[in-house]
Simulated scan of single mutants.
Amino acid sequence: MEFGIHAFVWTEGRTQDALETAMDRARAAGFGLFEFPGLDPKVIDIDRLAKHAAKLDLKVVASAGLTPAHDVTSSDPEIAPRGEAFLNEAVSVARDLGSSQLSGPIFSAHQKFSDLPTETGWRTSADVLARVAERAKAGGVALCLELVNRYETNLINTVKQGVAYIGDTGSDNIFLHIDTFHMNIEETDQAQAIRYAGEHIGYVHVGENHRGHLGTGAIDFAPVFDALIDIGYTKHVSVEAFDSRALGDPLKATCAIWRDLWDDADAFARHSKAFLDLQYAEALRRTAAYA
């Protein structure tokens, strides 16, 4: 497994210098992978970021989210096409960064909904994602759908829903992006959910139930790593956490980041890397012991 960390540990990622500084700090903490938030190529020099990553020998993951104005579940004749165009551009950014995937909650608006999802919205979203995935495949980019909790989308919250959604797209270039923070809310058993998802999993986020230091909350990570090993998962596992002091108001509101979770982002990153290394090593040891 390749362990990574999200830019949000240091920055919301709205300036070139902030992103490059965060990349430097991620590498200094021992990570070999860095996840970018949604990037606007009109503001951020994507080629320069790619070159900086290469200089650091740092692999990258691109992510994105949809606003209500880009909601691909919408019945408005202008909104879903606008969302499709946005996702196509995000795929191009991922490709140009050197990312083999575009992750995030890209199947609906990333927000708290006040209504139940509709069959039409599900079908519209699946059709849009199928077309985007086909175009992305030509550029070597897979789509990884982040399964976020009920307060951040109404469409897909569980791996069972995610697997069904992938089936409805008919695409072989769409995978699930699971996250222990969200699974802690929506799944009755995280390890069981991982085994159910199996080969559909394309990316993994780890985060505590309180989004603070790993190992200090309610999530039992041992069964999570055991399940990932059981299904033969060898792809990326990244820490996602948020420094409230670095985030703008819209993101704080969407993700409900209302308090500081640590005092030192660099120390948080170092602790996270050591925690992931230990969890993985112990899971491998358990696997060997029961082989």
Results as ranks from 00 to 15, higher is better:
76 D>N: 15
63 S>Y: 02
151 Y>W: 14
254 T>Q: 12
203 Y>H: 14
226 D>M: 09
107 F>C: 03
39 L>A: 02
58 L>T: 00
141 V>G: 07
271 H>M: 12
178 I>V: 15
18 A>V: 01
76 D>I: 06
142 A>Y: 06
142 A>G: 03
76 D>M: 12
111 Q>P: 04
20 E>F: 05
141 V>W: 10
151 Y>L: 11
274 A>L: 15
26 A>V: 02
137 K>T: 11
223 P>T: 12
246 A>H: 05
86 F>T: 01
204 V>Y: 05
193 A>H: 08
261 L>E: 04
101 Q>V: 07
107 F>W: 06
29 A>H: 02
184 N>S: 11
255 C>F: 11
160 K>D: 04
124 T>H: 02
1 M>E: 13
53 A>S: 10
86 F>V: 07
147 L>R: 02
229 I>G: 10
11 T>I: 04
212 G>W: 01
57 D>V: 09
44 I>K: 01
119 E>K: 13
73 T>V: 09
184 N>M: 07
219 I>H: 02
167 G>I: 06
172 D>K: 14
146 E>H: 07
140 G>W: 10
173 N>I: 10
186 E>Q: 15
111 Q>D: 13
273 K>E: 11
82 R>F: 04
153 T>K: 04
229 I>Y: 15
146 E>I: 02
168 D>I: 04
197 A>V: 01
164 A>G: 11
209 N>M: 14
253 A>V: 09
74 S>A: 14
14 R>P: 02
68 P>K: 09
269 A>K: 00
252 K>N: 07
242 F>P: 04
256 A>K: 05
94 A>S: 03
202 G>I: 04
24 D>Y: 06
144 C>R: 06
144 C>D: 13
264 D>L: 14
62 A>W: 00
89 E>N: 08
139 G>Q: 15
227 A>E: 12
130 A>Q: 08
111 Q>H: 09
220 D>P: 10
132 V>Q: 01
27 R>V: 12
285 R>N: 05
214 L>T: 07
174 I>P: 08
200 H>V: 02
77 P>H: 02
219 I>W: 11
75 S>Y: 12
244 S>T: 13
111 Q>Y: 06
125 S>Y: 11
62 A>P: 04
208 E>K: 05
21 T>F: 03
62 A>Q: 00
284 L>P: 01
286 R>D: 10
203 Y>K: 08
252 K>M: 07
248 G>V: 05
205 H>N: 12
230 D>H: 13
99 S>M: 05
144 C>N: 15
221 F>T: 02
163 V>L: 08
261 L>P: 03
219 I>K: 06
49 L>F: 04
105 P>C: 02
168 D>V: 08
9 V>S: 03
42 K>R: 13
216 T>H: 15
283 A>V: 12
117 P>C: 09
78 E>Q: 14
156 I>P: 06
136 A>E: 07
38 G>C: 07
105 P>H: 00
193 A>E: 08
226 D>L: 10
277 D>E: 14
127 D>E: 14
283 A>P: 03
187 E>C: 09
1 M>N: 12
174 I>F: 11
206 V>I: 15
16 Q>E: 10
280 Y>H: 10
124 T>E: 12
87 L>G: 00
230 D>Q: 13
254 T>I: 15
158 T>F: 14
24 D>E: 15
202 G>W: 01
